[in-house]
Design a protein around this nucleic acid. Structure first.
Lengths: 222, 222
DNA sequence: ACTGCTCTGCTTGTCTGAGGAGTTGGCTCG
DNA sequence: CGAGCCAACTCCTCAGACAAGCAGAGCAGT
């Protein structure tokens, strides 16, 4: 026995439709049978079919046009990044962060404007101030790293950074709580060197420093 | 004059609700007013409210539990990556690909199994065969690069790769069509060197080769 | 033969009313 | 004070009705 029908009919109908779409029953852009046809086919009422269609419309799979019909706009629901990141494990996430952030550091060194540099320096100072409360320190650290990614002027990279950091926040807090030592002088010096490399437009050094710092973070979490 | 295009009431209602959620009217995990309360508040019928809720449920913002109520599960709809990539421009996308792929190449050099290596070599051979039809060549090239990312054994990186490449496919095809020259000996040699570096477990060289190759691609698209 | 019109059937959109099913919190009773 | 019942509330599902919009068939005029 699977489950005692915990899921509402509308959800089941949506899942069933998605399954049939995935199987290739209708091509991209093709029209689905009408609601009045689909309802008895799925064994539910028309309102239920409509709610299932709405659900898939919210996920970007279907689009309905009044008077015309319901059309397939995607052959599959886009991967849910939250789910991917939950499944993946912290190490994989931080490796992805290393990838984007070291590249972003190099780009930042090449492209940073004076305003970017001011923001980086300011974030670095705030990061140094908040060295007593763990959560506050982690957040200040994240803000600092974000200013660097922002200085790369690449919307994809900044979006990736924002996708990954929430997942890492808790793990970092836990790690620091165990180590009982953070925000020390050597840690601050490493970050200051990163900022200096970007200020000096030294792409190689910026990538290197960023990478080295995050690798220690990864090994701390392993 | 607003617009000729009229959105269905249910869509308008969904947008309105999302707006109120974003504004912080209800906190994360909090319960929304009942359908019978919401309907006159939004000036629509109950079934329309239900369809709006379903739509937001499909986007992961709301979740409804029978007998209990409708609850906020996210304060905002997750960014749609397709939209981000469309907006971002090819250069930004390929820079993101450089970031993940050069890092993946280094990880692949460290972690590749014999099976990974066989897959890489096989993909390299197929890539060399298909050097006459542009589309086929681009697809074979993508498969080759994907085997490398797969050898890094990091689910986040492979997912990122799969997210980016569809967006790049057309751009690469267009570029090669203009240049009228592809799959040459030097191009093939560069890929072979990348495969060799991974075979030799040389992390630095693998990252370097991958990066250099993709940079020429970026500059070709600029 | 071509153009432009209307008419018609089919589609989705919206509302209402009626029960069914599940949850919650208070109330009664031991 | 605790256990069990119960009533009010919630969402879930259905059926029916009518409105609004689209697309193609058919027709009339040029």
């Amino acid at each position: 026995m699977a489950q005692v029908r915990r899921a509402p009919l509308a959800d089941q109908a949506a899942e069933l439709l998605l399954e049939r779409i995935r199987s290739g029953e209708w091509r991209l852009g093709e029209k689905l049978p009408g609601e009045t046809t689909l309802a008895p086919q799925l064994g539910v009422g028309r309102s239920t079919v409509r709610e299932a269609i709405r659900q898939l419309a919210g996920r970007g799979v279907l689009a309905s046009r009044q008077g015309s019909g319901v059309f397939v706009t995607a052959l599959d629901a886009p991967e849910d990044w939250d789910a991917v990141l939950r499944r993946a494990g912290i190490i994989s996430v931080i490796e992805a962060r290393i990838a984007i952030e070291s590249e972003a550091a190099a780009l930042a060194a090449a492209r940073r404007t004076p305003a970017d540099l001011r923001a980086i320096r300011r974030a670095l100072a705030r990061r140094a101030e908040h060295r007593f409360d763990i959560e506050t320190h982690v957040d200040a650290d994240t803000v600092f790293h974000r200013t660097i990614v922002a200085a790369a002027h690449n919307p994809v990279l900044i979006e990736l950074f924002d996708t990954f950091t929430p997942r890492l926040r808790e793990a970092m807090i836990d790690m620091l709580r165990i180590r009982k030592e953070f925000g020390g002088d050597s840690d601050h010096a490493a970050h200051a060197q990163l900022a200096d490399a970007i200020a000096a437009r030294d792409e190689v050094a910026a990538a290197e420093r960023s990478r080295a710092h995050l690798l220690t973070l990864r090994d701390g979490l392993a």
